[in-house]
Design a protein around this nucleic acid. Structure first.
Length: 421
RNA sequence: GCGGGCGUCGCCAAGUGGUUAAGGCAGCGGCUUGUGGUGCCGCCAUCCGGGGGUUCGAGUCCCCUCGCUCGCCCCA
């Protein structure tokens, strides 16, 4: 037998039951962004490969081994976006938005990373992201973080933890990196193989290694916080003060080092213990160097991204959504009845009612059975007799009572009951 | 890319070398051909992800492959 055609590995179908939840999540996000007066931006899913290579960093795993890249017919190297920030920054520069002042933007949509799928991770996944461009004030860090925090809380998530750290500016980072590498080189033999590898490629990442022995070793390592310049430290304190002002609880995590090259100063993650190994629901931080690095004006910026699948996972475990039902289930049978029913359905829909029209031509009993199952409060029954007299039978599916009505009074009855509950 | 677990009907699921692969849900048909929620009857996998092998005989054992899943790396 021929193998059945199926979706690509790590690419998931969302069925109507699931999209109800997604729509809810998206509409809450929209509302939060509206209240904070953040504008939506939509950028292409496909970008020149070079954008990500330059923006995210050649040395990162995302660029090094996780991108979906190919050459198009014009032999340009194209890449399905693995994250949202680079594209937004590109668009902002290209469209000259910064000349109109600082920008508060959000986006949502699919991202693509060629990784092994596991709990809370897919190859096509979705993010809601926020980007504040042109803001250096520590309050902008706090406002951005608060937006994420409030959205997650609003969606009913509990037991979240906000992890906070500062990576300092480029110089701080470089200075610390040198110190850390020197210290670790004395102890290479005590490091796990992965960390030995990272010592060469991305030493800061060793800090958040999951290897217990490595973590034990790091207790005595030079600390990132201590190597921050006075200015960086003061800035970090100002961010904390602002979060305190908002009464948003956070935990300082000196081991938090975000993966992508462009982060500086504030780095944060919002995690949940309920997610398994991929505990991060929201990750973000400041990326003051990125805009300039991509050819724009020197512009401070901060942003974050929420993983929508992970968010949906957490919402599912917390709350159940009530099943939706149409207002009316429309049953018809007969030569005259069927086209008449089609018209009645359209009329009712035109008036704003949700009408499921049974197109099966099955026996009345069968259709009523489905009407009942649909949970609709009302069934409208049309047979040839009704069609001939331009009338319908309105049936209350809870009480079982029926009423013969013309189209106008049907509409009035239904609208009246919809308003009255 | 690496390691562990798993793969029987649309969904859930029994079956662990021996003739015709339980059951439940959903679906379809029927129990006075225009009236539902129960109830009853019938239908619904020549086949156990795919391929090869062992055996008199395999869904059940072995190998390969694909997929799912959990973890590592990494990240939302």
């Amino acid at each position: 037998m021929e193998q059945q055609l199926q979706s690509l590995r790590g690419m998931v179908d969302l069925l109507p039951l699931a999209t109800v939840q997604w729509q809810h999540l998206e509409s809450r996000a929209r509302e939060h962004f509206r209240r904070a007066w953040v504008g939506e931006i939509r950028t292409p899913l496909l970008e020149p490969t070079e954008l990500f290579a330059r923006g995210i960093g050649e040395a990162t795993d995302v660029v090094g081994k996780e991108m979906y890249s190919f050459n198009d017919r014009g032999d340009r190297s194209c890449t399905l976006r693995p994250e949202g920030t680079a594209g937004v920054v590109r668009a902002v520069i290209q469209q000259g938005l910064l000349s109109q002042g600082p920008q508060k933007l959000w986006y949502s949509g699919p991202m693509f990373r060629y990784e092994r799928p596991q709990a809370g991770r897919q190859r096509q996944f979705h993010q809601i992201g926020l980007e504040y461009l042109g803001f250096a004030d520590p309050r902008s860090d706090a406002e951005a973080i608060a937006l994420a925090w409030d959205l997650l809380e609003d969606l009913g998530l509990r037991g979240l933890s906000l992890q906070l750290n500062s990576l300092g500016n480029g110089e701080d980072r470089l200075r610390y990196r040198t110190a850390l590498v020197a210290w670790l080189e004395q102890r290479v033999d005590q490091l796990d193989p992965d960390s030995q590898q990272r010592l060469l490629s991305n030493p800061l990442r060793i800090l958040d290694s999951k290897n217990p022995a490595t973590q034990a070793l790091l207790v005595d390592a030079p600390s990132l916080g201590a190597s921050l310049s006075t200015e960086s430290r003061q800035r970090f304190e100002a961010v904390q003060a602002a979060l305190g002002q908002l009464a948003i609880p956070y935990e300082l995590n000196p081991r938090l080092v975000r993966g992508l090259d462009y982060y500086s100063h504030t780095a944060f993650e919002i995690t949940s213990a309920e997610l398994g190994a991929q505990a991060t629901v929201c990750g973000g931080g400041r990326y003051d160097g990125l805009v300039q690095q991509l050819g724009g004006p020197d512009t401070p910026a901060i942003g974050w991204a929420i993983g929508m699948e992970r968010l949906a996972l957490l919402m599912a475990s917390g709350s159940e959504l009530k099943g939706a039902a149409p207002d009316v289930y429309l049953v018809s049978k007969g030569e005259l009845a069927e086209p008449f029913a089609l018209a009645v359905a359209r009329q009712l829909r035109g008036a704003g009612l949700a009408v499921e029209l049974d197109l099966s031509r099955a026996a009345f009993a069968k259709q009523l059975k489905r009407a009942n199952r649909s949970s609709a409060p009302w069934a409208v029954l049309i047979g040839d007799g009704e069609a001939q007299s331009q009338q319908v039978l309105l049936k209350d599916l809870r009480e079982g009572e029926e009423e013969r009505l013309d189209r106008e009074s049907l509409l009035r009855r239904l609208q009246g009951s919809a308003l009255g509950g």
